[in-house]
């Protein structure tokens, strides 16, 4: 019994040894920097955009929710159905249309829980372009699912590139049905207002979404996430 106690204590200590942001920063540099930009700036040319292998992380602490990140790193699932840059992952179907070539998509490595915690802590310290975010920019409102979908699809046309539920919507952009649990609201408000201030060459158009609709978009993302969690 004593041996078991020692063993449990040793495991806990090992976990504690890699739980801090400092350790996470080392993991980021060692394992993540080859695919993710940790320092900025974002791609300024198409060539740089094409070379990007994973999302820029130099503002991860403003963009992602820590609770989501820590869980996701342990069991990563694809967020962009067509990969980071869709032309690299499409092939022609029988009728000459484009479809995703799954064989070209690479799975994101999973991290053990202590490393996921440490990396999340380190990511939360990366706050490049903080001047673009206004704390408290988003204030929660209420919105029906149908109103949100009307805005997202019929009025703004965003469904063209984003899935609002698994298997429904466009594929070149990231899914939005997990955005509510994945993304910080004040960052979303800033990004929706001007995506190119964050990512000058990103293939998302600026729809000039006003403040009221920005709030509705984020409310809608929350609704989708809540539905997905049920």
């Amino acid at each position: 019994m004593t041996h078991i106690k020692y063993l449990v204590a040793a495991v806990m200590l090992a976990g504690a040894n890699i739980a801090g942001a400092e350790d996470g920063a080392a993991i980021l540099q060692g394992q993540c920097a080859s695919c993710h930009n940790l320092t900025g700036p974002a791609p300024a040319t198409l060539q740089e955009l094409w070379n990007r292998k994973g999302p820029d992380l130099f503002y991860a602490g403003l963009k992602y929710k820590a609770a989501w990140m820590e869980v996701w790193l342990q069991k990563p699932e694809r967020i962009r159905p067509a990969g980071m840059f869709y032309p690299d992952h499409v092939k022609s179907d029988a009728e000459g249309g484009d479809e995703i070539d799954d064989s070209t998509l690479v799975a994101h490595p999973a991290l053990p829980a202590p490393e996921a915690k440490a990396v999340t802590a380190a990511l939360m310290e990366l706050k490049g372009k903080a001047e673009l975010v206004t704390a408290g920019a988003y204030t929660p409102g209420t919105l029906s699912r149908s109103s949100g979908e009307m805005l997202f699809d019929k009025f703004k046309g965003c469904l063209a590139c984003h899935e609002i539920e698994p298997g429904y919507g466009g594929l070149s952009g990231p899914e939005v049905y997990t955005a509510g649990q994945r993304l910080q609201e004040d960052w979303l408000a800033s990004y929706l207002r001007d995506p190119h201030a964050w990512d000058p060459k990103v293939f998302m158009p600026n729809k000039h979404i006003n403040e009221t609709d920005t709030r509705k978009f984020i409310d809608y993302f929350h609704l989708l996430s809540e539905e997905g969690a049920k």
Binding site: A82, Y86, P87, V90, S92, E95, G96, G97, D98, E99, I100, A160, C161, G170, L171, S172, F203
Partner: peptide, 15 residues
């Protein structure tokens, strides 16, 4: 091309 297709035939990956 995300909508108009890599061949420009209107059959992009998003359609």
């Amino acid at each position: 091309a995300q909508c108009h297709g890599v061949k420009g035939n209107g059959k992009g990956v998003n359609v």
